[in-house]
Design a protein around this nucleic acid. Structure first.
Length: 424
DNA sequence: TCTGGGGTCCTAGGACCC
DNA sequence: TCTGGGGTCCTAGGACCC
């Protein structure tokens, strides 16, 4: 038996925890660069604020009530996420963190001492008391059913955020699935929904009742698993230890369009530096470095340009200097004059756990001297909180830096930004 | 003027091997 | 008339998730 715990309107709720004056008020959080809406409080949803709505459109809308808007504050959300996860772990020993605001819990056997839904209410209360955030809990015999239950717990207020689909109660499961649109099923996105609709499959129950062989023939093994999971046959297990990453991406839209090579090279250097830092954090080495650049796909009066180039290294590396060099070399192959670039990024692939390539034992190219020590020194300075050092290629305070004009304080991670309670 | 970022998995097709 | 079989690896593209 799995439980899925998910924080309601996570980013918007984090903003509200430290702003009691916003209780009952509509709140929305914007994506990086203050681009579009990525989280809404219940009140904002009721106002009709849609996910993905661009901010420049939203700000022109006539709303019956003031909407409180925030830039993304990932420092705050990551810290609040850690608090939620550790509270959940206190009540359930085997867990898998699935996303920044979701946790799968192994709750096998828990019904020997407590009713599943009573346990769900305990989880809810514990997290609420410790963090100020409200979670929804769904339970089922497979991860997909737990997800469906969690969807139901939000859909009908009478469940008060906790819904269990016990294996014994098949009718309850069928009832819920008959009410769940197929597009709300975990693993069924936009494209699959369209194709399923065309075949007359519109509810989760109809999908569950399709033959797995038929689904595999017409779709793929992935959707076949979903069908089996909906029928209470678990195909996706709990992953307590996350598998090592296979890819690291660092990309960003620019606060304002980039038109010069020098500015774009600075951006690429900055992303390469950050990607290399993440790579060392994963204790990995990489052999493949790719760079992409693109203009805005929304600009109707400009011709679109997007391209990608990559470098394959003889020896795996995690030295920032190697990664910057490969990234700039790639950029030089795809840079074109005369475009207004909106976004760029650096991607690392082909990871190995050590820096020595066995195929190149007789190579003349020797690794850089003291590379490990230098990178270690760099990372420890940058993690010390005392200040930062960086490579000059990245430039200083560039004008294309991403926009965050409505950023809230880092209430939980910076002493200088800790909330102050005034006593009268 | 202005539309996010970071991941995973699967499949098909081509290159290449013996 | 008629030109094999079986495999691996890599890449690109498409789908999904939050």
């Amino acid at each position: 038996m799995f439980a899925l715990a998910d924080v309601n309107a996570f980013y918007a709720s984090c903003e509200k925890v430290f702003r009691p004056d916003l209780r009952g008020k509509p709140v929305a959080v914007l994506s990086n660069n203050d681009g579009c809406v990525i989280a809404r409080s219940a009140e904002a949803k009721r106002l009709g604020i849609k996910m993905g709505m661009p901010w420049f459109q939203l700000r022109q809308m006539q709303l019956p009530e003031k909407l409180h808007i925030f830039s993304s504050n990932y420092e705050l959300y990551a810290s609040m996420s850690n608090r939620v996860m550790s509270h959940l772990e206190e009540l359930a020993p085997r867990v898998e963190q699935y996303s920044i605001d979701e946790m799968f819990l192994d709750i096998r056997g828990i019904d020997n001492c407590i009713d599943f839904e009573d346990f769900g209410r305990q989880l809810r209360e514990h997290v609420k008391n410790g963090t100020g955030l409200t979670i929804g809990v769904g339970m089922g015999i497979s991860k997909t059913l737990a997800k469906s239950a969690q969807w139901g717990s939000k859909e009908w207020p009478q469940f008060h955020g906790v819904l269990a689909l016990s294996p014994g109660n098949r009718q309850r499961t069928a009832k819920l699935l008959s009410l769940q649109p197929v597009g709300e099923v975990w693993g069924v996105g936009n494209r699959l929904t369209k194709k399923l609709h065309a075949m007359g499959i519109t509810t989760a129950l109809q999908l569950a009742q399709s033959s797995p062989a038929f689904i595999r023939r017409n779709f793929s093994v992935v959707l076949e698993r979903t069908v089996r999971e909906l029928n209470g046959e678990p195909c996706i297990s709990l992953e307590e230890t996350p598998p090592p990453k296979q890819q690291i991406v660092c990309s960003r839209s620019f606060g304002e369009r980039i038109t010069t090579y020098d500015a774009l090279r600075q951006a690429i250097c900055q992303y390469a530096e950050r990607a290399a830092e993440k790579l060392r954090g994963e204790r990995q080495y990489c052999r493949h470095i790719a760079v992409f650049v693109k203009t805005s796909p929304f600009a109707v009066n400009e011709t679109y340009y997007g391209n990608v180039a990559s470098e394959k290294l003889m020896n795996p590396t995690r030295d920032t200097r190697d990664i910057i060099a490969a990234a700039v070399k790639s950029l030089d192959r795809i840079w074109l004059d005369g475009y207004r670039y909106a976004k760029a990024g650096v991607m690392l692939n082909d990871f190995t756990p050590t820096g020595v390539s066995q195929l190149n034992l007789f190579d003349e190219i020797l690794p850089r001297a003291h590379s490990e020590q230098l990178m270690k020194a760099l990372d420890s300075i940058n993690h010390s909180g005392l200040g930062k050092v960086w490579f000059a290629g990245r430039g200083i305070a560039p004008e294309w830096q991403m926009k965050r004009e409505m950023l809230s304080p880092a209430y939980t991670t910076r002493w200088s930004e800790i909330p102050v309670a005034a006593i009268r």
